[in-house]
Nucleic acid binder design. Structure first.
Lengths: 215, 215, 215, 215
DNA sequence: GGCTAAGCGAGACGGTACGTCAAGTCTTGCA
DNA sequence: TGCAAGACTTGACGTACCGTCTCGCTTAGCC
């Protein structure tokens, strides 16, 4: 990545930022399918060639443009696991409510169903980076005694994945499919179910022993 | 709908079926973005104009083509709420695992972020029709005594919506974003959490007593 | 043509006239290239099928529609050959000045460059029928003593053809290419040259004596 | 015309020639109405878009393609006005006998009946450029004493226009409408009439005095 | 401080798909 | 059986965007 030859004119650093910003702007105004690279280039005051020199195409560009949106997610300590979850879910819902996130994220996810490289790029650029939130929340709750310590690493990883699927999936579905706001009331209900499920004694997920499948 | 004029040559009924089938076939082979209406028309043995006479465009066509896939979802009585949920979630996951469902559903959902008519079409053609499963499962579980009767109609509707968002969302995310199989193990874990949350006494969603109702 | 079987519903006679009139009307408004058979059918209050049952296509229809325009050409006796020619040339120019004649006639002539059947149809329907004017004018002038009698039939035919080419060609070119009016002044000048050439003693066309017959 | 911006990739000069040549070739093989721009593009080894970037449509393209054909007309000194006229008329007839000239020229003339811009383009690209021949022939004949000097500029212009209409019109009509060859015999007859008319003493065109309309 | 390699804006280029339109044929039901 | 209505196949239209390419110009870094 850093091997770019030393000679020649260096790439304009400002261009990158302008392009990503222009991409988000175009996503808001036009949506994914009407967004054209020429339009993005014009908005950014840049030639189309410059764009292609840095990204392979529309998909890659939009992944990068959208990824930045999720970096602002934070997990301040709100005193309880329930409050922490509610807080981050609301933040997540707020981001997903922005048109550029909706259009852009869904579109690249769609394309990724036929493009493994793109899916990997999404997972590393967006999804994996946000798992930190789940991990941080879990650690904090464990320290508080709200959750038992993980029995082993495998179970911990599976639980994190499950939680991530449930949180992100429910908010995505609520916002994009049901097209209704993931507002405070909905988030509170969701959190109760999620947290209730995670802490219900008899139904703790994946007990190491699976005696009779009595579940 | 029934107002089609009496005169003139009637539309070929066979063409509709052939077109929808060809659309699914093309989705499997090409995915959304590479699918062209000319290709669909050729596969269906039909002229492109016939396609445009019946659907406004790619989006509408794919919605209809994909909607049929979900009609095969059923909710056989497996004896317990947990087993019922696991069964239907697995069915849902199996459908979503098909390439035509993945590409097609995600794509029209993406477009629907900028097109209210399309979103409505999706909701009525696909989503609403499957809520019957949640309602049937709830009724059956209530009859079994596994769930308390709904306190009132509003709460019931909200709970149905929440469950639908959680179930469909989690499977979608697992399948499309995490790109890992929603297999039996995952489904079992998911069901435990969901069911635990729904039945956990202290965290029953939206308890009817809420003194200030300020939420 | 007259062999239509006795059984079944007879063809509407009124339809033919309505269709031809509608064709001329459409030619005026739209010109050749924008004229559609569906539009003609609609104007005539007739179904497209009816049209195709009677004409093979646009070309044939327009030939028939335009041919009628030229039937109104007449050659009243104006007292002298020059006056007769001027009169008929002005009439011809007047017809060619109508949009339907311009567009229609030129277009079918264009098509006829690649379609021998169409060219023949034009020649018999339009051109040959108007040669009567040249013949009548020649006979009248010969009777008046303005022109010498034809030496033989071959020469007469050649002269008629030449005059027809010169008259029709000059008016066509003036009207369609030069796009300037073939008005009285122009017609007078043209007639002088034509008539002067035809009667000039030393340059009488095709003098019968031509020793070597090398032509 | 010379304002083409300095930036950007310059247009391929070779493409223009290839396209015009391909257009003439396609005209020969297919005629006007069957000629498609895609076919021309393919023959020229060029994309359809390149065609549309340079010409507004079929009409404009064919005007340019056909115009070049007429540039080869010349007026070598053959010793007498009659011989000069015969020579150039034969040349003109030879060009018009080519299928691409027939189809192309007629077609654009047809379209020009409804399109003033196109007619103007034809007049400037084709017609006006060939009037040089009439002017040169007239000058040469005047120098030889075969024609009297023009009385005034207005009369000269009118005479040139008239001669052009007569020559071009007669050849056009002979070739395209009568569909018979404008061969040497026909040309000699035509030239005799034309020249006889132009030089006949009593019928010199447009004498300044118009006493009694006795013509 | 000039050389040089790369970046850059502009825009032409070969492609591909779009959505529309007209030509000409075929299939209904009514008269 | 003629006819109006209109669905059908076919194929060209003109447009838009893709991703590549060729220009001439700019700009930084190294010699």
């Amino acid at each position: 990545m850093q091997n770019s030859s030393r000679t020649g004119r260096p790439r304009s650093a400002a261009a990158d930022a302008a392009i990503l910003e222009a991409t988000r702007e175009a996503l808001v105004e036009l949506g994914w399918s009407k967004l054209t690279l020429q339009d993005v280039a014009t908005r950014a005051g840049v030639a189309k060639t410059t764009l292609y020199r840095r990204w392979a195409g529309k998909n890659e560009l939009v992944v990068d443009a959208v990824a930045a949106l999720f970096d602002e997610l934070e997990l301040p300590d709100r005193g309880s696991l329930a409050a922490d979850i509610e807080g981050v879910v609301l933040q997540f819902a707020a981001i997903l409510d922005r048109p550029e996130a909706k259009s852009g994220l869904m579109a690249v996810m769609t394309e990724s169903t036929r493009d493994d490289a793109l899916r990997e790029r999404i997972r590393t650029s967006i999804v994996a980076r946000q798992k930190r939130l789940v991990l941080a929340g879990r650690a904090r709750a464990t320290a508080r005694g709200e959750l038992p310590p993980a029995a082993d690493a495998g179970e911990a990883a599976r639980t994190v994945d499950l939680i991530f699927d449930m949180v992100a999936g429910a908010v995505l579905h609520r916002t994009l499919v049901s097209a209704r706001p993931a507002d405070e009331e909905w988030v509170r209900g969701f959190t109760r179910v999620l947290l209730g499920g995670l802490t219900a004694p008899a139904t703790r997920p994946w007990p190491s022993q699976k005696p009779g499948g009595s579940v």
